[in-house]
Amino acid sequence: MQLNEIHAKPSLRSAHTCKIGKLFKDRRALLSLSEFQVASETFINVNYIKAIESGDYSVFPARVFALQYFNKYANFLDLQLDFFDIYNSCK
């Protein structure tokens, strides 16, 4: 396999997604909830919660999953945040 045949996966993390993730994490901490408590109450996989809080969307199988879980988690925490579409910024 030649070097030009290898396709690197685009980064699905940015400074902006990390800042948004910190808002999620800070709000969850303010409510004294663990990641596992949130997962149990929202039926969101704990790995997805960690991904949103770290701003790294590479764990999601597709953009639609990231968008839906982002919105579900934001609604649970009563955060009014727009989804930063890291998927479109990687093109």
Score class of each variant (00 low, 15 high):
Ser54Phe: 06
Phe36Pro: 04
Val64Thr: 15
Ile52Met: 13
Lys25Val: 01
Ser58Leu: 05
Phe70Cys: 09
Asp56Met: 11
Tyr48Met: 07
Ser34Ala: 08
Gly55Val: 01
Leu23Cys: 00
Phe60Asn: 07
Glu41Gln: 15
Phe65Val: 07
Phe36Thr: 04
Ser32Ile: 03
Phe70Leu: 06
Glu35Asn: 11
Tyr73Leu: 12
Thr42His: 03
Val46Asn: 07
Gly55His: 06
Phe43Pro: 05
Cys18Ala: 14
Asn75Ile: 11
Arg27Phe: 00
Ser54Gly: 05
Gln68Ser: 06
Leu33Lys: 10
Tyr73Asp: 15
Pro61Tyr: 14
Phe24Cys: 05
Gly21Gln: 01
Gln68His: 08
Asn71Tyr: 10
Ala51Val: 01
Phe65Ile: 13
Ile49Gly: 12
Phe70Val: 02
Gly21Pro: 08
Tyr48Pro: 03
Asn75Trp: 13
Glu35Thr: 07
Arg28His: 09
Ile44Lys: 11
Pro61Asn: 08
Phe43Lys: 09
Asn75Gln: 13
Asn71Met: 08
Asn45Glu: 15
Lys72Arg: 14
Phe43Arg: 12
Ala29Met: 03
Tyr73Ala: 05
Phe24Gly: 00
Val59Ile: 08
Leu31Lys: 02
Arg63Gln: 13
Leu33Phe: 05
Phe24His: 03
Asn75Val: 15
Tyr69Arg: 15
Gly55Thr: 06
Asn45Thr: 13
Phe60Pro: 13
Glu35Pro: 01
Gly21Asp: 03
Gly21Tyr: 12
Leu67Cys: 04
Ala66Ser: 11
Glu35Gln: 14
Thr42Asp: 10
Arg28Lys: 05
Phe24Asn: 00
Tyr48Glu: 08
Ala29Gln: 04
Phe70Arg: 10
Ser40Pro: 01
Arg27Lys: 10
Leu23Gln: 09
Asp26Val: 11
Ala51Asp: 09
Arg63Asn: 13
Gln68Leu: 09
Arg28Met: 00
Ala66Gln: 12
Glu53Cys: 04
Lys50Arg: 09
Glu41Trp: 09
Gly21Met: 04
Tyr48Ser: 12
Leu67Ala: 04
Lys22Ala: 13
Asn71Leu: 05
Glu41Leu: 13
Ala62Gly: 01
Tyr73Pro: 15
Leu30Arg: 02
Val64Gln: 15
Ser54Trp: 06
